[in-house]
Write a protein that binds this DNA or RNA. Structure first.
Lengths: 173, 173, 173, 173
DNA sequence: TATGAATGAGGTTTCATTCAT
DNA sequence: TATGAATGAAACCTCATTCAT
């Protein structure tokens, strides 16, 4: 693994574990076993590093989530919850960034784009059952998923999550 | 208004506007038109100030939310969304704190307690319609509310909010 | 002497001795026996400190220079050269700043103002001898004084200076 | 143009435009479109690069200045002022270096040598008019030229310069 | 000759906190 | 209760220089 990737992964880990402001570039460099200087050779500044970290994470998570053979609600839920369990730290970081009032616009735009895509997908999957209401229903469902995610991220409990997941699937299919 | 209250309100405002780490004690003192020294006379440290700020906010918001003559879903929703519009900055701060990995436990406990209370209330209100499922349904509904709140807090749009609110009420009553 | 003055004097000394860029705020604080933090409590930043240092120096030097009982060329020359010998380090710093392409405009304006005042004074003193040419002659004389000052500041040699001074006075009176 | 020359010219330009300390080796390399490594292959260090830059500039300027068919005050003045207009950035850099307290001695010696040569030339040209005083008068004239140069370099104004030049020539011839 | 990744020291600045008054 | 001067640690970032390729 080359050093630039090492820096990105260390940054991701530490941002997710301690928050952006609470993670110094120094600590990232130490964790990645490189010099502070190299970090600034690869990334213009701390904000830029964050941007790359998020880009990298979203790309990976989107790829994972969309890796479905036959797309349907059941399969999407499966993938969504699997991803949630696997990436809960990163997802927490994303929430943090979305909510934080001083997050750079660029990062916000990336995350918003991601959300709109999921909304479109949900709408199309709900069409058979909800017809004209499918769009509004998708908004509600997305909010529900966000809320569940938020809850799990803050207070991880796989049992609760599994129960909720099961109930949700029954409800929507 | 005495100076201690002034400090609390300034802290609340600035924490909500810029985030906890990004707000210096200096700026809080300036905004409250008191000296830094006085801030440390009233609060042990910055963390302690945050704790008091959150205590104060939750108390106020809970009081507002529970101020209902005849308790029912419709009325609760009304109050919830009214409070959301009015306190969106403070609510954002609460979300931020709940999600942030290094928030002092005490603050988290306060916010978790608040949530459990609301969950109990929802369960009882859903009982007539959902019977045995009322508890699970309450979890889902709370998540949905959280998700909607999150969305509004990040991207305030009263029109969307009103539409969603209307649709949600229809769905649950 | 209070600490703010101490910082100004240390900054003046070190800026003059080593140049602006080559003098770190750390070294200034150490020399003034205060903490770095205090320096930033009194001055917004390093540029601001420079501004105050120059303001302070110009004020002092102007006061000295203008302290003449009966104003005439001989007396002015006397004072000018006396000040040059006494303040050669500070004067060097001023030259450095005037010439440096990135000196803040504010500092430049202060130094330019100082120069214009001297030019006016010289013009009036040369009037009796040079009549209509007094203004142009003053420009030349000011340039000559600048050149002599420059030479002395770079390569201090009191003997040469005294000889030049004498010759100059003969020439102009 | 080979790469070494490119580096020298870029360094000259950037040193003159922003000052020595404010110009990083990185920026020089970028401007010259070569790698940092190559810069250190050709020059021992940043100081060394400066030395070569100054050597190069002085050589070129001296050559220009001495390119006179029939040497006399009028012709010398002409050349001097022509060079001033053409090379004002480089000349400013030279002044900066001469005055700066931490300029390497070697650079200072080069510039001092240059000055002594001009002084000798002036003395000989003033001999016919000033006889025994020609040496002292040359010192004054050189100082005047320095002062005028300084003024023009800091605050370029061709009109003023032309007027002063004319007055000076009348005065001395 | 030529590159650019890599280092480490040091620079400017911020800030939570203390303390004499 | 109230002030604000003062501290010291730590943050972000730059840069001269080296070195493997």
């Amino acid at each position: 693994m080359n050093k630039k990737e090492k820096i990105i992964l260390s940054a991701l880990l530490l941002f997710a574990q301690h928050g952006y402001s609470e993670t110094s570039v120094d600590k990232i460099a130490q964790h990645a076993q490189v010099s502070k200087g190299l970090t600034y050779a690869h990334f213009k500044n701390k904000d830029d590093l964050l941007r790359v970290v998020i880009e990298h994470s979203i790309q990976k998570m989107t790829a994972e989530m969309m890796e479905i053979e036959e797309m349907n609600l059941q399969a999407l839920f499966d993938n969504l919850f699997k991803s949630l369990k696997k990436n809960k730290e990163v997802i927490r970081l994303c929430f943090l960034l979305v909510i934080h009032p001083e997050t750079p616009d660029l990062v916000n735009q990336m995350l918003e784009g991601q959300k709109q895509e999921l909304l479109k997908l949900l709408t199309s999957l709900l069409e058979p059952k909800y017809k004209a209401d499918s769009s509004r229903e998708a908004v509600i469902l997305l909010a529900t998923i966000d809320g569940i995610t938020l809850d799990y991220v803050v207070n991880p409990n796989s049992k609760n999550l599994k129960a909720t997941e099961k109930y949700l699937i029954e409800k929507y299919t």
